[in-house]
Design a binder for these strands. Structure first.
Lengths: 130, 130
DNA sequence: CGGTATCCGACTAGATACTG
DNA sequence: CAGTATCTAGTCGGATACCG
């Protein structure tokens, strides 16, 4: 078989690496992975910890992460029911990157907000007072 | 709720750091920053290099990045017109992270695809054929 | 060339109601 | 407790048309 393995290129629209970037970029994925950083969590813990996520989005994102092999889902047949979520090795391999993202967001938030304020102030003077 | 300056916390829905994560997470933002990594580019070069982006999304994302202080926009009053885009220092500070993202996506693409195939195969046996 | 404005369809995400 | 199903509003994003 001579199907050449071209290197993954996120600029190419058909390349799967773009899907991977999409998943990482997902607003809830990042927060979920971050929340699972310090160990296994149950569904309700995630829901509580991640402010503003709806049940639908939480479940949906969790399923996506599970599908991509980043988290494991472990249901317990107890009553009341209980489901545990944890990072896989693959998920953990992403942790450094994701917490780097959080760190960047946290430390450069001020810069970004200042830049926005500057830009928005500029909007007003398009040549005429508005 | 809280006018006190608490430390940025992406879990809190009102915290700006979530907006920052959103911007980074944006599918086109990542690709644009990556494309600008090796220097200034003009609008048409970006459009060409980033496959599948529409003019609307390219301009819109570029404006967002400019507003957030990550890229500069430099129009030249020549004919035909020409606009150059480049990363700011802030934008460059993000480069390591973003290319780390690309590297992760590239190197773990196979794992993710395998996990997906495994998961999807599982779907078929929910107890009923479908 | 490098946009902007508008229209409109497709997908997203939230609220709600119900189930194992 | 941990979901699933459904409905719907809002947003996103592509195509098109036109301007500086």
């Amino acid at each position: 078989m001579e199907s050449k393995q071209v290197e993954p290129n996120p600029y190419a629209k058909n390349c799967g690496s773009r899907q991977v970037i999409d998943r990482i970029g997902d607003r809830w994925s990042v927060l979920i992975v971050l929340t699972l950083a310090d160990g296994v969590k149950r569904y309700s813990e995630l829901a509580q910890r991640i402010e503003g996520v709806s049940q639908k989005m939480l479940t949906q994102t969790l399923r996506g992460l599970e599908r991509d092999g980043l988290v494991t889902r472990t249901p317990h047949a107890t009553v009341p029911p209980r489901v545990d979520y944890a990072l896989t090795d693959l998920g953990r391999s992403l942790l450094g990157l994701v917490s780097g993202l959080e760190a960047w967001a946290t430390s450069h938030l001020g810069d970004v907000e200042a830049a926005r304020a500057r830009y928005d102030a500029r909007e007003g003077r398009h040549g005429s007072a508005a």
